[in-house]
Design a protein around this nucleic acid. Structure first.
Lengths: 197, 197
DNA sequence: TCCTTTAGCGTACGATCGTTCGTTGGCTGG
DNA sequence: CCAGCCAACGAACGATCGTACGCTAAAGGA
């Protein structure tokens, strides 16, 4: 039972990983069981089985994408001293994530936000929680840097969150739609300028 | 023949208008002929007829959404003197458009950008042209204001385009996903601060 | 060694997808 | 007044959607 359970876990992860890739390109709602099964060389029943339903599969994919963002940006930054040092690393990690993200088509969270923002349901609720947590985390790092005297308190933390998030979203469009190779460097420069003003 | 042709034109516009609304909520690729026909009280053949195919319908919807953005933001601004006055009006119109857009779920162009940026095709090409034109227009207004001495030339025009576009995108998320009623006013304030620094 | 568990497969279901076709009914130009 | 045009309909098509069910075969515990 142990070994088979481990194998099942591996299969599950393989399905989710492929699902994340497909959903990044075509959107979460275009993630169909049939095409996913074909891409994996599995039967439809074998794909949907571990998740119960298509909705469960979508939820698992969105959860995985969230974990990937956290693993790429948030987690590594926590190893750095709080305040300006962490903020700078955060910006580097963030722009690096935008430049060569683990997804084929840019920031999964931003894409999901645009896709789901008008469709109530579990997916939207989960995404809302994710975005809220991320913005709160970003705001907290800014406040810490302000209280430490690293950056000016003249600027409102909420304003900075909006500005930084916006630069990232704009850069994401420049990279993915406009194919502008200079976008990541510009985003990094603009983010640093925003906080060190 | 005249009257019937006019009626056909009216029907076409009615289909596109409903299509824009539906696509704003569910995405352009979720715009199905069946649901659209039901929403319109028409047959599927009657809906797709004027456009030849589903792809033609999607193209017409995206075109209409683009025209609506231009009509809401770009066109009215051209009645104002170029330079800072026009920039200020542009920001007001832009934020007003984000606040209570003609679409039920926020900026259609931003949503389409996230949805289509990884899917080559006519839709993406058209959207790319639209975004490129909009950014070029915005940049031009900034340069004009700079040359007139209305705003500082210390800031790069491309940087400002990225910053302003980003504030709009971030505000769009705050309005649509986070349901933050203070977002439009903050966006307006941040945009004005960005150009009048 | 045998029994139980279960991961994954194959098949089938009804619903809906986009598209095509023939038809119909109300206009219009002559 | 009448013949012709055309917008829109209704039905049907093959394909694909998500889901459900029974089965097979491999693995683990007794």
């Amino acid at each position: 039972m142990r070994r088979s359970a481990e194998a099942a876990q591996l299969t599950r992860e393989r399905i989710v990983a492929t699902g994340v890739t497909k959903a990044s390109t075509d959107g979460l709602s275009a993630l169909t069981i049939g095409t996913l099964a074909e891409a994996l060389g599995m039967s439809k029943a074998g794909v949907v089985g571990p998740f119960g339903s298509r909705a469960g599969l979508q939820f698992a994919v969105l959860t995985k994408a969230t974990e990937m963002f956290i693993a790429a940006v948030v987690a590594p930054s926590m190893k750095v001293d709080s305040g300006l040092p962490r903020l700078r690393v955060l910006i580097d990690l963030w722009c690096g994530y935008l430049d060569s993200s683990p997804f084929p088509n840019g920031c999964f969270i931003t894409a999901a936000s645009c896709e789901l923002d008008g469709r109530p349901g579990e997916l939207r609720s989960f995404l809302l929680a994710t975005v809220t947590r991320w913005r709160a985390f970003l705001r907290e790092q800014i406040v810490i840097a302000q209280e430490a005297g690293d950056i000016t308190t003249m600027l409102d933390a909420d304003d900075l969150v909006t500005a930084l998030t916006g630069i990232a979203m704009s850069a994401n469009q420049e990279i993915q739609l406009l194919a502008d190779a200079t976008a990541p460097a510009r985003a990094r420069r603009l983010m640093l300028a925003a906080i060190t003003r």
